[in-house]
Design a protein around this nucleic acid. Structure first.
Lengths: 141, 141
DNA sequence: TTCAAATTATAGCCATAGCTATATTTTTTG
DNA sequence: CAAAAAATATAGCTATGGCTATAATTTGAA
């Protein structure tokens, strides 16, 4: 098994991308959460979104405003939140990716609960290429 | 290999932790970068830090101010940046963790360059338990 | 049906992370 | 050694993501 060599200069390449992804990660979390709530409860109320995200209600409202601006969700004042086609598609992708990351962690030997927790942070930084490798890895044996 | 079952309710547990880690991630990146520069060039100048981080110089200066506030670095005006013992220890941890994440990704089948890039984002969300599992995984075969 | 309770929106605050423009200090060079 | 160049610091702006307090709206119950 070849240990990777240090590649200091290349390292910097990843940093700026990482920054860009941080705001995308929040959008993904909200979209995923909204999809989950709609699936479980038939609708996604602001209060429920806030509670599950672990933030205050105005924080959730502000995030939803941004989701609407980005074309991922819709909502009418004092009504529930809905996903656009684009939002629903994103939710599906994010959910699938989450499952794959969890499965990979578990196959490696990470305890189930830890895998769920860590996947929440990790999943947003898994590129398409890496996801492809993950799928192949899960199909082995 | 058991596919993981959806565990929607548990999911929310991870979110708040994820938020807390985002600010820690930046600190880790800077500390790691400063250690790298000192190692390579003998000193870490603000301009070099900024360039490698892909940010403007005042942005780096501001981050360094925070590093100093957190006791991870020191600096005198118009002079280079240095790591405290604590900062150096953190840099070492972060570096080791980075190598492990890269090695795990590569063992799974992720191309080297992709592994380096994705590890940059992933590494900050790998818990101690997961790291332990990663080490064992790398030792297999 | 009206009024209290629950829900959602708004206002206004803080901190972080980014930027440009500019001032200050150090370094280099003619 | 003085002046130009380079490096660093500071000021002040934007946007995000968080909060509390409060206003507005909807829902439900008497």
């Amino acid at each position: 098994m070849p240990k990777s060599k240090p590649t200091p200069v290349i390292r910097s390449e990843g940093f700026s991308q990482t920054r860009e992804k941080q705001s995308q990660a929040l959008l993904e979390d909200y979209v995923e959460m909204i999809a989950e709530l709609i699936d479980e409860m038939g609708e996604a109320r602001v209060a429920d979104i806030a509670e599950r995200m672990g933030v205050a209600q105005p924080t959730a409202t502000k995030a939803i405003t941004r989701l609407k601006r980005e074309g991922l969700a819709t909502s009418r004042p004092y009504r529930g939140v809905f996903l656009t086609d684009e939002g629903a598609a994103l939710a599906k992708l994010v959910y699938a990716r989450h499952r794959i990351v969890v499965d990979v962690l578990r196959k490696i030997g990470v305890p189930a609960h830890t895998a769920e927790m860590d996947a929440e942070g990790i999943e947003h930084y898994v590129s398409e290429d890496t996801l492809l490798a993950f799928r192949k890895f899960l199909d082995r044996d």
